[in-house]
Simulated scan of single mutants.
Amino acid sequence: MTDAKGRRHTVKLKAGGNFHTTHGGISHDDLIGQPEGVVALSVGGAEFLVFRPLLHDVMVAMPRQAAVIYPKDAAHILMQTDIFPGARVLEAGVGSGALSLALLRALGPAGRLYSYERRAEFAEVARKNVRSFYGEEPGTWEVRLGDLAEVIGPEEVDRAILDMLAPWDCIDAVAERLVPGGVLCCYVATATQLGRTADTLRTHGGFTEPVLKEYTARDWHAEGLAIRPGHATSGHTGFLMFTRRLAPGHIAPRKKRRPAPGAYGADYTGPRPAGVEAAPVIESEQA
């Protein structure tokens, strides 16, 4: 339900129930059986728009213990990893299940989603959210507990999405399961995670040069001559990284563009891609 100020309230209707507001209650019985898009009137005369929540609304408002991938990022993940009906998808870091909802819808009844989660309490929240949205746990979904690098299943996958603290620890395991041409997406929160994951992929050699993205979204206000950016802005939520798996025995061509001076200097301690030499140690440093 949405009030006159645009505030949204998620309500699960049940016979005999009431939705209480500062302007009086609204009987659930008055809404059950009605079409979407009606205007409900509270006892105190306040109007509320009534619609079933969209997937976007559910992902933002769902119960959670772990942070979720928000719709603006989930939309780009589904598009840029090319999730298609019937695909086999590996998801690691199921969290509260927000991305799982979107993936299951896109995969359809012929697809398969393997979701890995290290913490049992997070997995249980995800299961409850999926059951709440779909009415049951889809038969195309399998939740596996444990560290991905240790418990990864034997099946090949077409797409892999890693939402975890250290995705670089799982690159080798995922590479063994991802089919040639398959797409890998890594979702991380910080720039240091972004850099280390990108260099791990380059060092591995079996993936294309990773594409690194960050997306923001901004609302707009438009009434008559008053056209301006809105006050609500969805800024940084995470970094997205996309790459594709090469065929066995093939190594990604070396980049023609040289790294920036100092990119892999003496202070750099991360994975070093092929062809990138360590910076020489000057005498003063040796002393």
Rank of each mutant, 00 (worst) to 15 (best):
A222C: 10
T200M: 02
G262V: 06
R257L: 00
T233H: 09
E209T: 10
F242Y: 11
V211H: 07
Q193H: 05
G205W: 01
P261A: 10
K213W: 15
G195T: 09
T203N: 05
H236Q: 09
W220P: 01
K255G: 15
P259C: 03
A232I: 15
K213Y: 13
C186Y: 03
P210A: 08
Y268F: 05
G205S: 12
A266V: 07
L240Q: 07
Y264G: 15
A191K: 11
L201D: 00
K255P: 14
T216Y: 15
L212Q: 15
T208R: 15
G181M: 01
G205V: 09
A232W: 14
T208G: 09
V211L: 06
S234E: 11
A266T: 08
G206F: 09
A191S: 09
R196S: 02
H204P: 00
Y268K: 12
G205D: 04
E209V: 13
T208L: 10
I251N: 03
G238Y: 15
R254L: 10
T203Q: 12
A222S: 11
A189H: 00
P180Y: 08
G181L: 04
D199H: 15
L194N: 00
I251H: 08
P253N: 01
A232D: 12
G238T: 13
T216Q: 14
G182T: 03
M241T: 04
R177L: 05
V211R: 10
G224V: 12
V211N: 05
P259A: 05
G181I: 04
P180A: 00
T200R: 06
G230K: 02
A266I: 06
L201W: 07
T216P: 14
A260F: 06
F239P: 10
T237H: 04
C185R: 02
T233M: 15
G270W: 14
A247Y: 11
G265L: 03
T200C: 01
L194T: 03
D199I: 06
A217E: 15
A217H: 13
T197S: 01
G265C: 03
A252Y: 12
C185M: 11
T203K: 14
T190Q: 04
R254S: 09
A263S: 08
T243P: 04
E209Q: 11
T208P: 14
K256Y: 08
A260S: 06
A226T: 13
Y268S: 03
T269K: 15
D219S: 11
A217K: 13
G230L: 05
L225R: 08
V188R: 13
P180F: 06
T233A: 15
R228P: 11
L212S: 12
T197L: 03
H231A: 11
D199G: 09
Y264E: 12
T192M: 12
Y215F: 14
F207D: 04
V183I: 13
K213L: 14
L246F: 04
C186G: 03
G224Y: 09
